[in-house]
Every structure is written in structure tokens, then in C-alpha cells.
């Protein structure tokens, strides 16, 4: 593979955006900017899903993460009125230790997985597996009970969230 194709360029750009905005999310002082950078990361990951022919997951990812979860985060941050001034700081030596430990773990993970180059294709791939048609069949044939159970989980989570945020529970 001598020349660089458009897909590789797209992969590079999306990965660069994801990693850079992830780093900015961690090191920005203002929590609202952190949320916005995390949304950029999520959009880059949705782009990766589209590159991988997982269109359904890309759409669900944008709806659930960028649409619901991050709005929830933003809403809580704005409701608590958090900003740069209220942001707690760790002592410098703990920050240095955290960066060292996290960096070492990242390097170890990347280095350990670098040698795993023997992962070849098991079979000729099928571009249709990520489409709604195919995934819906799998979801409602093989995973019907877990799917229904996840609705019970949502109900429990909803009741729990309402109960927790209620004032004056006796």
C-alpha cells in the first residue's frame, strides 16, 4: 500500500480530532468547555462508526451521547453554576503523579497492543451488517430478552434519579 487513500486521510483527521479534543477536555479549567470538547470527541467517534459501515450505531451514538447525555451534563453544570472560579485544584505533585501514571498506562497499552498485528480477517466482510435492517433482525431475534430487560433498567434508573433528586424524603 504505497499511496495514501482518502479513507486513510479521513481516519487520520478523525483520530486527530478525537485525541486532541480529548486532551483539551481533560486540561481545560472551565467545565463547560470540557463538555463541549467531549461533544467534539463524540462526533469524531461517530465519524469512525460511519467509516466502519456502522451507520445505525453512528446515528444512535449522536442521538444518545451528543443529544441526551451531554445535554444532561451541560444542564447540571449550568444549574450548579460551576465555572473556572469554583473549579477545585489538586496539588501540583498529585497532578504530576496523575499525568505520569496515566501516560505510563497509555504507553503500556499502546505498546502491548502494537505487536498484535496477526489479527487478519476471518471471512470476506459484509458491508451490510451495520445497517438497521440487519441489526434489527439480530436485536429482536437473538437479543430480545436483554432488550426488554434494558427497558426495566431504564425504568429503575428513572425512578432512582427522581427519588434521589427529591427533597425531604422521610
Amino acid at each position: 500500500m504505497g499511496h495514501i487513500t482518502i479513507t486513510q486521510i479521513l481516519f487520520g483527521v478523525l483520530s486527530f480530532v478525537a485525541i486532541i479534543s480529548g486532551v483539551l477536555m481533560i486540561f481545560t479549567k472551565n467545565p463547560i468547555y470540557s463538555v463541549l470538547y467531549l461533544i467534539i470527541t463524540f462526533f469524531a467517534i461517530a465519524g469512525h462508526y460511519i467509516l466502519l459501515n456502522a451507520q445505525f450505531l453512528a446515528v444512535v451514538h449522536v442521538i444518545v451521547y451528543a443529544g441526551a447525555i451531554m445535554v444532561l451534563f451541560l444542564f447540571v453544570i449550568m444549574m450548579l453554576n460551576l465555572n473556572k472560579d469554583t473549579e477545585p485544584h489538586k496539588p501540583a505533585w498529585i497532578q504530576i503523579a496523575a499525568v505520569t501514571a496515566g501516560g505510563i498506562m497509555m504507553v503500556t497499552l499502546v505498546g502491548a497492543l502494537k505487536g498484535a498485528d496477526q489479527m487478519k480477517l476471518a471471512q470476506p466482510n459484509d458491508a451490510n451488517i451495520g445497517l438497521v435492517n440487519n441489526l434489527g433482525k439480530v436485536l429482536f431475534n437473538d437479543f430480545l430478552v436483554p432488550f426488554e430487560l434494558s427497558s426495566v433498567l431504564f425504568l429503575a434508573a428513572m425512578v432512582g434519579a427522581v427519588m434521589l433528586s427529591k427533597k425531604n424524603i422521610h
Binding site: 477536555m25 467545565p31 470527541t41 489538586k90 496523575a98 496515566g102 497509555m106 497499552l109 502494537k114
Partner: peptide
């Protein structure tokens, strides 16, 4: 590799920040 880097960034953030929302 990309997933490992993103996961490592998440671990780094958990260690680095004190704000529970972050």
C-alpha cells in the same frame, strides 16, 4: 491503538481532575 489512546486519556482524566462531573 486509537482505542487504547482514548482509554488512556479517560484514565488520565479520572486521576487528574477533582471535579466529580468531569
Amino acid at each position: 491503538t486509537l482505542s487504547a489512546i482514548l482509554f488512556g486519556l479517560g484514565v488520565l482524566g479520572v486521576l487528574f481532575r477533582r471535579n466529580a462531573i468531569i
